[in-house]
Design a binder for these strands. Structure first.
Length: 825
RNA sequence: GCCCGGGUGGCGAAAUAGGUAGACGCAAGGGACUUAAAAUCCCUCGGGAUCACUCCCAUGCCGGUUCGACUCCGGCCCCGGGCACCA
């Protein structure tokens, strides 16, 4: 009767060694087998795993292991998103090289992944800071450059005048640099951009094909791309040859435009500051705004008259041009036409500065509208200009385009909110942009034979600036076109560039002659991508863009990188995100030591559905551990019965055993369904219910039937739990004589015979309120069921003296008796 | 500010297609076993009324649709994610 007690740490180490020796998770291309590529967003190697990681990677691992047991050829790789700001900060703080800090972190985190029992193909591991990885990124960038998808333009950055460095948005706190405390300045510098907007239409329309993505992510991307149909309008400027270009979706309101608002940094505005101190001051104020839209949106709207007038293309009327702090150069043309009668923001601004309000649209129903009180922003009936009077807004837009485009004043245009992707970073720890600045030829790509442009790694940072600018051996080179001495680009790529194509490289990890090879056609697209909802827009949009660009270069064939997407919620403690400053961190390390990986995995899967945030609970972990103990003890108690038994059971005669087997297969059905819809928390509760069920004896006299059910039940239980708690189920599977390797077993099948039932229980309602239950034979007719319901003794006191209006029967569920309306009403 | 989510017992949650609200687990209380404790096992466990049978209330708030609403619609409150240089 005595068996070894459950000892997670020795057991798990043993199983992990087995997987390693068997190379259980090595993925090999096999065209005959259906593949399944499961990928969890690779981590930034920050030093150690936190609970968010544990949740994230456990979810991916559960899916990968489940698919493997379904018989798929599974690829689950892992790597490191190794470039980025934290390494530079650590390098500066601890006076170590960013490269060695990163390397140490990956070593530690790799070990933690192994301890968690992750089923990774470790042969494919790489870090984005490996020159062999980023050389192909540089190569790809050059291909994009050759295709005209790369260009250089000036763009604004957060400039710290004391540290003399560019700051990320998160490094600007209350308008000041986080280290220096200096008031930051908006500074324009030349930067490289990728023309993601060339793909805007496809990125938008292909969202419809991503049926395996959460609808919320698709909606967010759709709004981010923000396609709007409208018109570009040229406004002439009084006493000037220059014009101001403006985009508007509401051409029907053009006659009501009473002023123009332009960005403080608009070329027109810049020329004014020389002679006008007030304008110069206003521009200086605007120059301290952070480069973040959120700040702009919450800004108090301010403006200043430029002294210039534009001419309304319809009425010829003079419209003052104002500089406004809420208009930015980065968006559209940096200028908007203001129609205070028909736009909320224009209305508020007009009130503040006493600018005229001119209604040109009225409500369709002809009702009165007080335009001085509230703008009328809906489509309506047009009053002006005369050529459009009486038309609907929609018709007027059409009419004005026809009327004004021959004169060159207006043209129909589709505008996207999406902006081109600025990929230049004035940072050290990143992929060098493979360009050379030649005094004669300008910007020239590095010759492909000279790739990679290797980032120097033996560097100790002494100040918060990129050292690349001052490293002669990095900086000095020759122009690949004319051989003149020239200098390298010292900016590095945005780290989103690395994460935009790593999933494809995993398929071809050891290919040193090209970026990708034929294996990418086998493995991609990724069948299941797992990651945080915080990546819903930027990362996922950039990766989709790269995928399409790779396709257009013939590197792969599919249209989208990720077929199915699971976005998991955060791990919270005491209702807040775990963070050092809040002191509510739970360290996976101590938990692993105390309980083992299976317990941690079980708890984190059980505690909440994948997509919602997860509240951490120490006692919940203890409960998960208790369940594994119970499973272990129960299974080993049955060892002598099970060990020498055939798995298949004969037909069951005994009804008690039969109904228990029905419950077992109902639970299996629910578990399968929950695996498919990725609600793994209820997979765990289903498994708990199976154990509860098996533990409950039937008191049957048919020992043989009971034992057969036991064998079947435990077999099912171990396999449905295997993706979640792979170590303990591996050992029990072996010890109970089911087979050598549970990974190679097949997924349990539902027995339809077992589900058969000749009775069903219905709910009785009166006016929708629960009033009782009714057991009927499964094959009863609707009429007889209704008769039985009306005759049910429990209901008589409700039915007494009432008129029955109707009786509803919802098959297999509910009978609802609707009584007549009460007479005293 | 804008876009996208979420809100159910003391706690994490469940309710598959609009059909028994609270499965499964945690915590708590009571009991068994034990010299004792731990572990384990058994019972109770949304609120209120009632000796009880039962009944009423209850899924953030207000309103609507429906025979029936946690689920669908409208309005509001609160919390979270994103807003283009954190990753």
């Amino acid at each position: 009767m005595s068996h070894p007690s459950y000892n997670a740490s020795t057991l798990e180490a043993k199983v992990q060694l087995y997987w390693q020796e068997q190379q259980s998770f090595k993925a090999i291309e096999d065209p005959k087998q259906e593949k399944f590529y499961c990928l969890t967003m690779f981590p930034y190697p920050s030093g150690h795993l936190h609970m968010g990681h544990v949740r994230n990677y456990t979810l991916g691992d559960v899916i990968a292991r489940y698919q493997r047991m379904l018989g798929k050829n599974v690829l689950q790789p892992i790597g490191w998103d190794a470039f980025g700001l934290p390494a530079e900060n650590a390098a500066l703080k601890h006076q170590v090289a960013a490269s060695s800090w990163t390397k140490e972190n990956t070593t530690h985190m790799r070990l933690q992944f192994v301890q968690l029992g992750m089923a990774y193909d470790w042969d494919r591991e790489f870090a984005t800071c490996d020159p062999e990885y980023y050389r192909w990124e540089q190569w790809f960038f050059i291909q994009l450059f050759k295709r005209g998808l790369v260009y250089k333009k000036k763009a604004v950055v957060n400039w710290d005048p004391v540290d003399e460095t560019v700051l990320a948005n998160e490094q600007v706190i209350d308008g000041r640099g986080w280290r220096s405390g200096a008031l930051i300045e908006r500074k324009e510098i030349a930067q490289w951009f990728l023309k993601i907007t060339d793909y805007a239409e496809e990125l938008l329309s292909d969202l419809d094909t991503l049926t395996g993505w959460p609808q919320e992510v698709r909606t967010m991307q759709q709004h981010w791309i923000g396609r709007s149909q409208g018109a570009e309008i040229q406004f002439e400027i009084e006493n000037s040859t220059e014009t101001v270009s403006v985009f508007s979706t509401r051409l029907d309101t053009l006659a009501g435009a009473t002023y123009l608002a332009i960005a403080a940094a608009h070329p027109l505005a810049l020329s004014l500051s020389k002679d006008n101190a007030k304008i110069a001051t206003f521009q200086k104020e605007c120059a301290h705004l952070k480069v973040a839209e959120a700040q702009l949106a919450t800004l108090k709207k301010k403006g200043i008259f430029s002294g210039l007038y534009a001419l309304n293309p319809i009425s010829g009327e003079r419209m003052p041009i104002w500089l406004a702090n809420f208009v930015i150069m980065e968006y559209g043309s940096g200028a908007v036409m203001a129609v205070p009668a028909h736009d909320q923001r224009d209305f508020e601004f007009a009130h503040k500065y006493a600018l005229p309000i001119r209604p040109v649209i009225e409500p369709k129903d002809g009702s009165d509208w007080n335009y001085n009180l509230l703008p009328f922003t809906a489509y309506g009936t047009v009053i002006a200009p005369p050529s459009c009077a009486g038309l609907s807004s929609e018709q007027a837009i059409h009419q004005l385009i026809t009327e004004l485009s021959p004169k060159g004043k207006v043209r129909a245009k589709i505008h996207y909110r999406l902006r081109d992707w600025g990929i230049s970073r004035q940072r050290y720890w990143g992929t060098p942009i493979p360009m050379i600045n030649c005094p004669k030829c300008g910007s020239v790509p590095v010759a492909e034979k000279d790739l990679p442009v290797v980032l120097p790694t033996d560097i100790t940072l002494t100040k918060p600036q990129s050292p690349l600018n001052t490293l002669p051996e990095f900086l000095n080179t020759h122009c690949p076109q004319c051989q003149t001495p020239a200098q390298r680009e010292t900016d590095t790529f945005d780290t989103f560039v690395e994460s935009s194509w790593y999933y494809a490289r995993f398929a071809c990890y050891d290919q040193h002659k090209s970026m990708l090879d034929d294996r990418v056609h086998y493995w991609t697209p990724v069948d299941q991508y797992v990651g945080g909802i915080e990546h819903a827009i930027l990362h996922l949009l950039y990766a989709r863009f790269f995928h399409k660009a790779m396709r257009d270069l013939g590197l792969l064939h599919s249209n989208e990188p990720f077929t199915r997407l699971l976005t998991q919620g955060m791990v919270l403690k005491d209702g807040a995100k775990m963070s050092k400053s809040k002191g509510n961190i739970v360290d996976p390390k101590t938990l692993l030591e105390k309980y083992g990986a299976d317990t941690v995995r079980l708890f984190i899967i059980f505690a909440a559905p994948p997509v919602t945030s997860l509240e951490w609970s120490d006692s919940g972990v203890a409960g998960a551990h208790r369940f594994l103990h119970r499973l272990w003890d129960y299974c080993l108690q049955q060892q002598s019965i099970l060990k020498n038994m055939a798995i298949e059971s004969g037909p069951l005669q005994h009804t008690a055993v039969q109904s228990k087997r029905r419950e077992l297969h109902q639970l299996l059905q629910q578990i399968n369904h929950d695996y498919e819809r990725q609600q793994f928390n209820t997979v765990v509760s289903g498994a708990m219910k199976i154990l509860n069920l098996l533990e409950k004896g039937t008191r049957s006299t048919e020992e043989e039937a009971e034992n057969a059910l036991l064998k079947e039940g435990i077999g099912i239980l171990l396999r449905v739990l295997a993706p979640i708690v792979p170590h303990i189920t591996h050992v029990l599977w072996q010890d109970l004589g089911y087979g050598m390797d549970i990974l190679k077993s097949s997924w349990p099948k539902i027995s339809l015979d077992a589900l058969d039932c000749d009775e069903m229980e219905l709910v009785l309602q009166i006016n929708g309120k629960l009033r009782g239950n009714l057991k009927v034979a499964s094959d009863s007719s609707e009429t007889s069921i209704k008769e039985m319901a009306l005759g049910s003794p429990n209901l008589q006191r409700y039915l007494q003296g009432q008129t029955i209006q109707k009786v509803l029967y919802i098959p297999r569920r509910v009978i609802n008796i609707v009584l007549g309306a009460s007479h005293d009403a």
